[in-house]
């Protein structure tokens, strides 16, 4: 591992001012898609666009196209599987990430 060598240059040490504030932004804990052990895969033929998966997704990582067909933001989806569990027509399958890697 390389150690990051960051040098903070304080031009005017007498006015150094930092406050503990943040603004809403994606990835405050990084790309949380890497936490996933299973990924939700939408079967567009089965999907009835009822939007239950979109409604219940805790992470807001089920997205809607113009026609309300849903797709997944894999950058941040944590793979909890709620979308698959609430789908009334079983149109979402949870696929193990390991298996995908092998493919």
């Amino acid at each position: 591992m390389t150690q990051e060598n960051s040098t903070l240059i304080i031009k005017d040490a007498e006015t150094y001012f930092v406050v503990p504030i943040s603004r809403p932004d994606f990835g405050s804990s990084g790309k949380t898609g890497s936490w996933r052990t299973e990924r939700p895969v939408v079967n567009e033929e089965k999907c009835t666009k009822c939007l239950y998966c979109w409604l219940y997704c805790p992470e807001d990582t089920i997205l809607r196209r113009e026609d309300d067909m849903v797709y997944v933001d894999y950058d941040y989806c944590k793979g909890c599987g709620i979308c698959a569990a609430v789908c009334p027509v079983n149109a979402i399958e949870m696929v193990p990430e390991v298996k995908r890697g092998e493919n």
Partner: peptide
């Protein structure tokens, strides 16, 4: 849209103390 007081890295916390 500001959130005050959520977690910060130990390094940044230290610098806030300095501040």
């Amino acid at each position: 849209k500001i959130a005050m007081g959520n977690m910060t890295s130990d390094d940044d916390y230290y610098m806030m103390r300095y501040s």
